[in-house]
Deep mutational scan, measured.
Amino acid sequence: MAASAHGSVWGPLRLGIPGLCCRRPPLGLYARMRRLPGPEVSGRSVAAASGPGAWGTDHYCLELLRKRDYEGYLCSLLLPAESRSSVFALRAFNVELAQVKDSVSEKTIGLMRMQFWKKTVEDIYCDNPPHQPVAIELWKAVKRHNLTKRWLMKIVDEREKNLDDKAYRNIKELENYAENTQSSLLYLTLEILGIKDLHADHAASHIGKAQGIVTCLRATPYHGSRRKVFLPMDICMLHGVSQEDFLRRNQDKNVRDVIYDIASQAHLHLKHARSFHKTVPVKAFPAFLQTVSLEDFLKKIQRVDFDIFHPSLQQKNTLLPLYLYIQSWRKTY
């Protein structure tokens, strides 16, 4: 089996927390979720979201995140109150960019949308954001926290390059993509939290790379249903696996070995980020709550012996909000 052949990389499970039942964490995340308004986002309300009498641009960002990046939404709820709305805006910006690729039928249209967001970032730093909910909220975040323009532009530029429907040539190319998107998002989150620390940035770099790799793995069944495969070609070739094997949902050992190798790289990034947690300011830990969902996925895929098409991998963990709150309460990542 794939797991038994390579099992030495995987460390002990961390979500089991001995003695936790003896201490009762304060009510927090679930209460916040219940208090949030929840009407559906419609095209009509989106168009009017920044106008008078609408929910408001902040509510639009929150709803977009809740629907399109639920794990990011849950993590954002546990940030300090003064930072929450800015991170909602930042993550909503990322969602807007991420959904361009799947929402257009022609690359030219995707490039036009990316050009809109490039100009939007430029206009935000000229205090002239367009009348668009996410743009307005992002402008507020930039003004409030003096966010670095370079990180925002890196996210747009990398998403634009990724409009080509090509597999990553190697794991390094996937890591570079993750660094310029997910890690950049974390650098900006640290700025919102008021953290300027080399060790925190180092952790953000590795956690962002782990996030990018896990996202690529999780999306494999969806991409396969659209006749697309984006997994690193070098690892596929190493194990003699073709793109057609993934399109046919082949579950042979060599296919699972490909998934094992890729998942192991995410695991190593996560492990390395945690190896120097004592040197990272505690104030930075809330920015890294996504490690909970990353670890949850890596454990699940290990349990199914790296069968990327196993139905259990597509099921939401209903206990994730609780695990996130516990992680926040324990002040760790």
Rank of each mutant, 00 (worst) to 15 (best):
R226P: 03
R169W: 15
Q327F: 05
S86I: 01
I195D: 00
T220I: 13
S205A: 08
V229K: 03
L147E: 00
E191L: 03
K209F: 01
I171F: 11
L324C: 09
C216R: 01
P133S: 08
L77F: 04
Y260M: 07
A219N: 05
R84N: 04
C75R: 05
T181I: 10
L78D: 01
Y333A: 01
V104W: 12
T189E: 06
M237P: 00
R91K: 09
H145I: 03
S242N: 05
L217W: 05
F276D: 05
S105A: 15
R66Q: 07
H59G: 15
L147H: 02
E173G: 07
L190D: 00
L78G: 06
G224Y: 11
F230Y: 11
E82A: 12
L270K: 01
V214N: 00
G110E: 10
I308K: 03
E63G: 15
A263I: 03
K107F: 09
K283Q: 14
L198K: 04
P130E: 04
Q243K: 03
Y125C: 06
K299W: 15
R256S: 07
D157I: 09
I301N: 00
E179W: 00
E137V: 02
L97I: 15
L217C: 03
N94E: 04
K149T: 03
M237K: 06
I235G: 02
G208T: 02
H59C: 11
K166E: 08
L62S: 06
Q315R: 11
S293N: 10
R144G: 06
R84Q: 09
R303D: 10
L247Y: 04
R248W: 06
V95A: 12
E191R: 04
T318R: 09
F230R: 07
C126P: 01
D127C: 06
V134W: 02
Q182P: 00
D123C: 07
K143Y: 06
K154P: 02
N94D: 05
E158Q: 13
S103W: 12
I192M: 12
L322W: 10
A203G: 02
K166L: 15
L185H: 03
G240R: 11
T279E: 13
V282W: 09
R256I: 03
I259Q: 01
Q314R: 10
L147T: 00
S312F: 09
G240T: 06
V214Q: 02
L64R: 09
D197E: 10
E137H: 06
Y187P: 00
A92P: 03
N162K: 08
G240Q: 15
V292K: 09
W151T: 05
P129H: 06
I308N: 00
V282K: 10
R256K: 13
A200C: 09
L77Y: 03
F288Q: 00
L198M: 09
L78S: 06
N170E: 08
P80A: 09
L270D: 00
E173C: 06
Y325L: 14
H223D: 15
H202G: 04
L147V: 05
A204Y: 01
C236M: 14
Q243M: 08
S264Q: 06
I262A: 03
A178G: 14
D127H: 08
L231F: 05
N180A: 15
D305A: 06
L186W: 00
R159K: 05
K271G: 14
P130H: 07
E175F: 02
Y222T: 07
K253C: 10
H199L: 07
R68Y: 11
L90I: 14
C236E: 03
P286T: 08
T189S: 10
G194F: 00
V100A: 13
L198E: 05
L79N: 10
D252E: 14
A92D: 06
K101E: 08
Q211W: 13
S50H: 14
N250W: 12
L270P: 00
L163Q: 07
D305F: 01
Q314S: 10
P129W: 04
K166P: 12
L190A: 01
A89K: 01
D307K: 02
P221A: 11
T291Q: 02
V280S: 02
N254F: 14
Q115F: 06
Y222G: 06
L90D: 02
G224N: 14
N176C: 12
L320Y: 07
C75M: 13
H145Q: 05
T120S: 13
I262D: 03
A92S: 14
E191A: 07
I262W: 00
R330L: 10
R249A: 11
E71H: 09
H269Q: 08
E122S: 13
H239D: 02
R91Y: 07
A203C: 11
Y73S: 00
E160T: 11
L174W: 01
E191C: 03
Q315V: 00
C236A: 07
S50V: 11
S76I: 05
F288I: 00
L111G: 15
A284V: 07
V258L: 07
N250G: 13
Y323D: 14
W139C: 10
L138Q: 00
D123T: 06
Q251I: 13
K119T: 10
I301V: 13
D58E: 13
V292M: 11
S312W: 11
L65T: 09
A49H: 15
A49Y: 15
K166R: 09
G224V: 09
E295H: 11
L62T: 12
E191N: 07
K67A: 08
R227K: 12
A81D: 13
R68E: 05
S50E: 04
W117R: 02
D197N: 13
R303C: 09
K149E: 07
I326Y: 14
L77K: 03
I192H: 01
Q251R: 12
I155M: 10
I326F: 15
F297P: 00
W151D: 02
L77M: 07
T318H: 14
Y323E: 11
S103F: 13
R68N: 10
A89L: 00
Q314F: 09
H199I: 11
G212Y: 01
S85P: 14
S264N: 06
E71G: 07
T220A: 15
V280P: 02
L152T: 00
R66P: 01
P133V: 07
P281Y: 02
E82R: 15
G240K: 11
P281W: 02
I192P: 01
E173I: 03
K172R: 12
D261W: 06
D307S: 02
F306M: 03
L247P: 03
I259G: 00
K228R: 13
D102G: 09
G53D: 08
L186N: 13
H272A: 08
Q243C: 04
F230N: 12
N94M: 04
T291F: 01
L163P: 06
M153G: 07
D261V: 05
T189W: 02
R218P: 02
C126R: 15
H310E: 06
Q182L: 09
S50C: 12
H272S: 10
P281M: 02
A81I: 12
E244M: 05
R218E: 05
Y60I: 06
A135P: 07
V214L: 11
